[in-house]
């Protein structure tokens, strides 16, 4: 190739660049602005993925799907529920932690989210790798005992446990579950010896509780209320601060001689880290609007949930407080972590 050819070609290229580059340079900001504008005005403009880190069909899944249903109506976009189960909910949570912070991948998880760091090794940091969006509901727990147990209230239970050390077996739905930690809290507060029997899920635990193979079991009110009202098991106390409207005759643990005792299971919504503030606010507002609907309130009451509307900042603080308290319970009880 002759040198002039090269020069000519370079000139042609230069000319083209001269013509195109400024045009491109002018176009880019417009494109960015347009994209930003549509992102602001039209979020969401495509389906949103809601990750539920539990298998389809559990209590967390049921509530998460109700949230998805309501959000898809109010946001005008379909919400695709993805059950990414496994690893104590860590696998699904990790997927959201590593997703793009565009508001199209969200996480619905239970209180296990905040307990997990003290139980298992996680591939993420529960504060740095997530944006807390909204606390949705608290689920108070109910301490139920076998009908043949002489104890009629928490004080008698503690007296019985002291008189018969090593005799009491209490079921736990799964290691590190809210019911487990509530029982550990009760055990360490009272300073008594109760053996914890691990189950997977509450169905077999109830079978053993009614059958008399274990003496006590602590579970969200939703699961326990049928057996209590049918007289199959005896309710000793609820773990909420106030008595529940569904079970007005059952006292709280706090009023049974342990003032200040309160423990809940709870559910919340998270996004990937650094979620844009306008998307965060929008999602938080929609969740709060859903929780304020009268029929949602009555349904929650029926299911034993307490709706918890609030801001993302409040939710963040709630998670931190709960996680710290769980850490202390787990450490005091010597629950084995990895």
């Amino acid at each position: 190739m002759h040198i002039t050819d090269v020069v000519n070609r370079a000139r042609i290229l230069e000319n083209a660049m001269n013509r195109w580059l400024p045009a491109l340079a002018r176009l880019i900001p417009i494109a960015v602005l347009a994209a930003a504008a549509t992102a602001q005005a039209a979020y969401p403009d495509r389906p949103i993925k809601l990750v539920i880190p539990f298998p389809a069909g559990g209590p967390t899944d049921a509530l998460g799907r109700q949230l998805a249903q309501s959000l898809s109506t109010s946001l005008g976009q379909s919400i695709v529920v993805e059950n990414k189960a496994g690893g104590n909910s860590a696998i699904g949570s990790d997927a959201v932690a590593k997703a793009a912070p565009d508001g199209y991948t969200l996480l619905f998880n239970a209180s296990l989210f905040a307990t997990n760091p003290h139980l298992v090794k996680l591939p993420y940091d529960i504060y740095k790798d997530f944006t807390p969006i909204a606390l949705i509901a608290k689920a108070p727990l109910l301490i139920a005992v076998n009908n043949d147990l002489p104890a009629k209230n928490v004080a008698e239970l503690i007296a019985y446990a002291k008189a018969n050390p090593g005799k009491l077996n209490f079921g736990i739905g799964s290691n590190g579950s809210a019911g487990h930690l509530a029982q550990e809290l009760l055990r360490s507060n009272a300073g008594v010896d109760i053996q914890m029997i691990p189950y997977k899920g509450s169905a077999p635990a109830y079978a053993d509780l009614i059958g008399g193979r274990i003496q006590g079991f602590t579970d969200p009110v939703l699961g326990a209320i049928g057996q209590v009202q049918g007289g199959k098991v005896r309710a000793l106390a609820v773990t909420s601060a106030k008595r529940l409207s569904a079970l007005p005759s059952v006292p709280t643990v706090a009023e049974s001689g342990m003032p200040g005792f309160e423990y809940h299971s709870w559910y919340g919504l998270w996004g990937p880290p650094n979620l844009p503030p306008e998307i965060l606010q929008k999602l938080n507002a929609e969740v709060n609007r859903w929780l304020a609907q009268p029929d949602v309130k009555t349904q929650f009451e029926k299911l034993g949930y307490e709706a918890q509307p609030g801001t993302p900042t409040e939710f963040d603080k709630f998670v931190r407080d709960n996680s710290q308290r769980d850490a202390k319970i787990i450490k005091d009880a010597g629950i084995k972590a990895e």
Binding site: A56, G57, P59, A62, G201, I225, G226, Q299, K302, L303
Partner: peptide, 18 residues
């Protein structure tokens, strides 16, 4: 059946001894 039971609860039917 566990999912079915959850659905019953959502619909206000409380299965169990009662």
């Amino acid at each position: 059946a566990a999912v079915l039971m959850a659905a019953m609860l959502i619909h206000g039917v409380r299965p169990g001894p009662m």
